[in-house]
Simulated scan of single mutants.
Amino acid sequence: MSSRTPHAEVVGAGIGGLTAAAALARRGWSVTVHEREDTVRAFGSGIYLWSNGLGVLGDLGVRERTVEGAHHGPSIQTRDRRNRTLARLPTNGPGQVQVLTVLRERLISALVAAATDAGAEIVTGSAAHAVDPRGAIVLDGGERRAADLVVVADGVGSRLRDGLGLLGRRRRLGQRCARVLIPRDTDLLPAADADHYIEWMSGRRFLLYTPSSVTDAYIALVCPAGDREAMGAEIPRPVWERAFPHAASIVSRIGPVARWDEFEWVELRSWSTGRVAVLGDAAHAQPPYLGQGGGCAMMAAHGLAHAMSCGAGTPAERLARWERTERPLIRHTQRFSYGIGRLNDVPELPRRLLLSTLGRSRSFGRSRLRAAQAVPTGLPRASGR
């Protein structure tokens, strides 16, 4: 880069866009973030933060702010409809994998603070209409804004990505999910279960219980896209209570559902073209069965800032180096998560036997946690742990 202050235009104020903005600004870039909505906000749910995401947050100076009030569960468990434990991953003890859960709103708030404290500008109600690979965005009103780097992080349905001709494959996975927050009442679950992260599987339906703070639990309901009797703005409680009798107290507390999102898989032919980089769900959307969508977005964004700020080469060469570094691990995580999601389609008995076997496999556990325990590019190895 030249001796002048380099400038970046970021499209999308989600986890990936805000992380990129903060990381670039902390490395001396001037940064403007454009958010289509009138406010920067998070859809109401919780989020898992593993070592990789915590390492990025530490580098951005907002780790403690993010994890204040977080929940540190003693294990992640998979159970069947009869409440039998099929697999159990101990967490947060000595020598065990570290993971915590927070409200997504808290994470977004911390990333906004990291970006603005570093000098980035966030402009809401600002939508980009097109991107020029030579280094510019065109806003809906016609304004053209030049940049040394353009970051496209505007979600799985990104029109900007599609306009660049980078899309290799975008596939709907045939599963829909409703995400809600409910109060963590003392009678929600038996005391022995209340602090754990629990995923129940019943037929082709799936229910996830995630304590995310002292007062809130994040609940995800997953079913096939064609399972109409299980979906609705008001969930059909009897349907879910029959499927998950041991979680009936959870189901009874679920209020209106804002939307049922369909899981998607996105792969690009390349993550960049010219001076434009694409990251987050726009580049590598994955089903959420590993809890790594946010972590992968943060790793890719942090690695992008490192690649564009360190070492030699043209912008295109730096972007190619970034992709070579970050893409293999994220691609592995995408594929692993997809494979876990396909277990929803396996009949009950063979699935129970398979999950019990996999739960005892060390190689399966290591493969599952490869991204979660990775040290983000540019951090000392000890910082990611």
Rank of each mutant, 00 (worst) to 15 (best):
C310W: 10
Q334F: 05
A372L: 08
D80H: 03
L24T: 11
W260P: 13
A300S: 15
S75Q: 08
V123Y: 02
A114Q: 14
V123L: 11
D216L: 01
G341M: 11
R331H: 14
L166Y: 11
S363F: 09
G165L: 14
S367I: 02
P224C: 08
L60V: 02
Y218V: 04
T39A: 14
T116I: 01
R79F: 07
I235K: 04
R27H: 09
G280T: 02
I15K: 00
D261G: 08
P6Y: 02
P380F: 01
I47P: 02
R63M: 13
S367E: 14
P376R: 00
A178P: 13
F263L: 14
I235W: 04
S361G: 03
A22I: 09
T5S: 07
F336T: 15
G69H: 02
A42H: 04
P74H: 00
E9I: 05
Y289D: 15
R351W: 05
A217Q: 08
N344V: 13
A70K: 01
W29P: 00
V131M: 09
A316G: 12
A147F: 03
A307R: 13
A243E: 14
W50I: 06
L279R: 02
P245T: 09
A128F: 08
L268G: 03
V266P: 11
R368S: 15
G95M: 04
Q292H: 03
S213K: 00
V346N: 07
E323V: 10
D216Y: 03
I340E: 13
M298L: 13
D80Y: 06
D140E: 14
Q96R: 03
P376V: 06
A320D: 12
D117L: 12
R351A: 12
P245S: 01
A217L: 10
L207S: 07
S270C: 14
A283Q: 09
R82I: 10
V222W: 07
A225T: 15
V278I: 12
Q77R: 15
A110C: 13
P133Y: 04
V156W: 05
G16N: 08
H302K: 00
G341F: 12
V276W: 04
L49V: 02
I340Y: 05
A194K: 08
N52K: 04
W271C: 12
A374R: 05
G174I: 09
V239T: 14
G359N: 12
V152W: 00
S367Y: 07
A217N: 06
L167M: 13
G93Q: 04
D117G: 08
L279S: 09
H34L: 10
T19I: 00
Q77P: 08
R176G: 14
T357G: 10
A372E: 11
H306Q: 14
T357I: 13
T325E: 15
R237N: 10
L167Q: 15
N92I: 01
R27V: 10
Q96Y: 00
V276H: 06
P380M: 02
L343E: 09
I254H: 06
P236I: 04
A136V: 09
Y289K: 08
A301T: 00
R145L: 15
G95Y: 00
E64H: 03
A382R: 09
V123T: 12
P288W: 09
V150S: 05
G125M: 06
A372G: 11
A22C: 00
T377F: 10
V40E: 01
